[in-house]
Design a protein around this nucleic acid. Structure first.
Lengths: 221, 221
DNA sequence: GTCAGCCATTCAGGCTGCTGTCAGGTCCTG
DNA sequence: CAGGACCTGACAGCAGCCTGAATGGCTGAC
């Protein structure tokens, strides 16, 4: 399952991202409504976790707009405000569930699992990228039916590419995928992992854009 | 199939009864353990749907008594989210499945249909995984006709794998199968059970995906 | 009640192979 | 051609995993 997390608090965001990720889902974490808007236009999510108080506005506006545009993606609201009026307004705005901060990460898991259960049974989405077949749920890649095994870090990096195929990703964007937000990486780890991915996926799978970053090649090579 | 529904909440009871009935099964709906007791003495049911909190007692007592009297009728427990920690005890008491309220009626139908498939006259379907023959109804596994006996926990874990063969299952997903959602497991119980399953099923039956989880191997080895 | 046997869980010691780092190389660009 | 950007083989350290053994709870027999 693919989850969009909209949360501007760094510590909480990290914790939630890690938990959902541990549960076996793909997580995109954005910190503003602006980025959230962009994300939902380019990616189909199965679930959105939405903080209400964000730097560039209130989550309700985003939620209302989402619903009036016909998007029915389940939304779970994360909020510090536990007032009844908020809750009611959230449900009216189209939220599916509510989590009041501070909440247990296990409680979060339970709610996410509930949503996942509804989606179970759908054929797991196979994404084709170039000559690769990617199964996000299984964390599996195949070429000509041959499975390609990735380690945890390799997969984390690859998932970053797969979610925005063809998009240029900067070094720091990729580092944020591999490490806790803001962790300072002093070495050329990204280069090393790109190298390892290329060795497994094929030399031309990932393009270097000198001075800018990397980009996943989407057509056959 | 004949189903006994033990549920004291009127609204939910009606909804469930209508749903199961629409699915083509005969439903007897009782609202107390006392009536449930009487019903099972006079009628042979193929499935029991059991609420836990009832006016005249707790469902576990009923379930335990049922099992110790040798009755093996499948039981699906219907429980509210905040009672979900009872799951451990439920497993021990002999429940076959769990549904957490509020649940989708379609989810209910799916579970009931699964039971129906297993228990309707024809021998329950044998699933082949690798060189193993798995009988979901009987909780039985064979290799070359030789039965392999699993304990309750071992089976619970294995069933998790069987339901999604080849899929990567994270540690917390597996823990959710054995315990309540979010139950904090401080030790390496999952590792221990994986180890035991491997000892019984064959060393290569379950693959470790380092840092990510486990996956059932589906081809012969 | 007592006892034996089984099972779930925990712990510790040992092992595997992933991760992050570095160094020496190649490839671009001006 | 010089300088920077990038690539990749090698390796030490350690996180993550495996499993034998110990513990305590529960059940059923007598």
């Amino acid at each position: 399952m693919r989850v969009l997390l909209v949360e501007d608090t760094t510590g909480l965001g990290e914790a939630v991202r890690d938990q959902i990720s541990d549960d076996g889902h793909a997580v995109d974490w954005v910190q503003t409504l602006g980025f959230a808007e962009t994300s939902i236009q380019t990616t189909a999510y199965d679930l959105i976790l939405l903080d209400l108080i964000l730097p560039d506005g209130h989550g309700f506006g985003f939620l209302r707009k989402l619903r009036t545009s016909g998007n029915t993606t389940p939304v779970i609201i994360l909020t510090a405000r536990d007032q009844v009026s908020d809750r009611i307004e959230g449900l009216n705005a189209g939220a599916d569930d509510y989590l009041v901060k501070p909440f247990d990460l296990s409680e979060l898991s339970a709610r996410v699992a509930a949503v996942a259960r509804r989606y179970r049974g759908n054929p797991s989405p196979l994404i084709r990228v170039g000559d690769l077949e990617v199964d996000l749920g299984d964390h599996r890649i195949r070429r000509d039916g041959q499975p390609i095994e990735l380690t945890a870090r390799e997969w984390a990096l690859f998932e970053g590419f797969i979610q925005r195929p063809g998009t240029l990703l900067s070094r720091s964007q990729l580092e944020d995928r591999l490490y806790a937000f803001g962790a300072e990486i002093e070495s050329n780890t990204i280069e090393v992992y790109v190298s390892r991915l290329r060795k497994k996926l094929g030399r031309d799978a990932i393009l270097t854009v000198r001075g800018m970053g990397y980009r996943l090649e989407t057509h056959d090579h």
